[in-house]
Every structure is written in structure tokens, then in C-alpha cells.
Amino acid sequence: SRLKKELAVAPKPPAKPPAKPPAKPDPKPTSAFLGVGHIDNEAGAQVTTVHPDSPAAKAGLKEGDVITAVNGKKVNSESLGAAVTVHAPGAKIKVDYLRAGKKATAEVALVDRDAFFAARSRNESGKKQPGHIVLGVTVEEDDKGVFAFAVENGFTGQAAGVQKGDLITHFNGKEVKTLDGLEALLKKAESGKEVSLRLVRGEETVDVVVLGSSQKGGAKLVSTKSTKAEKKEAAPVKPPPEEKKEEAGFLGVGVGSVEGGLEVEIVVPDSAAAAYGIQVGDVIKQVNGKKTTSIDELKAALGGASAGATVKVNLTRKGAD
């Protein structure tokens, strides 16, 4: 039939384009560790701290060096961490840096962060003289201070309630600004005695007292106090006090121009002019040593004198000065 023929010759629908594969998610950061503290610099990430025995230390990086690239990709302080943790522990990376303005390159073998600090904590525990507490907190330093990165179970830091991300601002009442400063304070803290920490956690400040210990499981919390920063409302701005304008002085005469001066036509009762005996018909020739041949000159000679000010008036009366 005709219908069948039309269906038989109908064009085939266009083939659908193949579906695009879903985008691969960004790789999760690994626990790879370089071993430097750093801050922003115009050229890259300026090294502020090099952890002893870290990959960076073994590769010869020093404080003051400016890391400019990792594997040829430019970095700054914000992007350096991601440029490292995109690699697995054990990987070797090429680090370009500046030292005293001169370019240099180092090959660095990354290690596992947790394994590095666990080994360091064990080594420091063994090296410490008996009686010195072990905080058991892995810390990092940046331009804001010293932050807790990881807390080891059973030691003084965990007993004090230290959490990852806490800013450690004080230890035993002393301000903590650097990793070296914190380590120096820890060496003076004896096991079995109370120590205090101040932690900043977002808008919260936590003051802790803990019985410190050099042994795992030996530390005990004594007290903790938490305060949240109060939002202070800005005080209303007071308008500046209005300047007190002095009342302008008033001589108390009406005048008209005549040859050589101004003739007094009116003397206001109880005015300064009346009080000092100025009379109708007097001719004012000078005020404060200035000629007064017009009303404008009289105003200028008075100079906006305030009420109570003294002025000198030279005048003639019936031809006599």
C-alpha cells in the first residue's frame, strides 16, 4: 500500500552523539610531606621553618629560601601544599627556589606526614630528660602562629582537649609565636606538674590547665574554661561640637559719606557710640588708624570686631579734631 511505501522510504533518524564520559574528580590530597613552614612572597612561598630531618632539610632547603615552582608549575604559599599532596609519599619532586636572589633546584623525596611526626615524637620522647612532658601534638607554623595539625592519643595534648586546627597562643602564660618557641617552653615543663594552654578555636578561646606527663596515659585534665568573643557594637559617632560664634560688635551709628570721612546721621540709644559721646554731625575720619571715607572702609576698619572689643575712633566735631 501507499502508506507502507512511504514508511519504507522514510529517512532514518540521525544517530545520537556518544555521551561524554563524566569528568574525573580531582584527586584527593595525599599525606605527602615536604617539611617547611612558609608565608606569601612576591616570587612564591618564602620558607620560615624547615623541620629537622624532613625531606626539605635533607634536600638542603633553608629558612629564607623562596620556593617558586614544583615540577615546573609555579606556586605561592597558598598553592604549595596542594602541589605537594597531589603526589604520593615516596615520590620525588623537583623544587625550584630562590636563595639570596639566585635560582636553584632541588630534588626532594617526599615522606608520609603521619609517619614522620610519629617517628619524631618517639625520638624526642627518648631524647628528653626524664620528667619533661610530651605534648604529643603535631604542629605547623604560619604567619598567624602555631596550629595543631594532629593530636596523638594518650599524651598531654589530648588530655588538654587540643583539636586539629587549634591556634596555640600561650603555654604556661608565655606567648607562643613560633614552633621553636613552643618547643623551648615544653622543655621547661616538668612531668607531673600542672601546665596551662590557651587555644583559639574560631571565635572561641579555650583556657586549659592539665597535669602534664612524659608518659602515654599519664596526663589528666584539671580545668577548662571557654569564652566566645563578644561582638562589640560600634559606638555611635558623636557629631563634633559646634563652634561658638562670637557675637559681632556693634558701633551704633548711621552714617553718610562726606568729604574726608563719614558723617554721623544717627546715634542708636544705649549703643557703644552713644556711651562714648559720639553725636549726630560728627565726621568719622579713621577707625583703628584706617581711613573711613566709605561705609565699606568703615566695615573693613572695624574688621569684624567682636562684642566687647576696643576700637579707636578719630572724628571731627564742628571742624575740631
Rank of each mutant, 00 (worst) to 15 (best):
R317V: 02
K318D: 15
K94W: 00
G304T: 04
D53P: 03
L135W: 04
L182A: 02
K187D: 15
D282R: 09
L315I: 07
A300D: 13
E42A: 13
E194I: 10
E204Q: 13
D296Q: 14
D142A: 05
K94G: 08
V134K: 06
V313A: 08
K318Q: 15
S125I: 08
K188T: 13
P55M: 02
V208Q: 02
I93W: 03
V50L: 02
P14Y: 10
V50N: 01
L221T: 07
K103L: 01
K74T: 10
P236D: 09
F149P: 00
P89S: 05
G304C: 07
F33V: 00
V137A: 07
A43N: 11
P17C: 11
V146M: 02
D321N: 14
D26F: 10
G154R: 06
P27R: 13
I168D: 11
K216D: 05
A118G: 03
V75N: 05
T68G: 06
G154A: 08
G202Q: 04
G37W: 02
E243A: 15
P22E: 13
V108E: 01
P17A: 15
A148Q: 08
A189Q: 04
E230H: 08
V208F: 08
Q215I: 00
P55G: 02
P18M: 12
E183I: 09
A109N: 10
K291E: 15
R201W: 10
L61V: 05
I266N: 14
Q158H: 05
L98H: 05
T105C: 04
N288T: 02
K220W: 03
K318G: 13
K245Y: 07
K231M: 12
A148D: 09
V313L: 09
A32L: 01
D296C: 00
A159G: 10
D143P: 01
A106T: 05
V66L: 05
L61C: 09
A189D: 07
G260I: 08
I133K: 00
S79H: 07
E140P: 00
V137C: 07
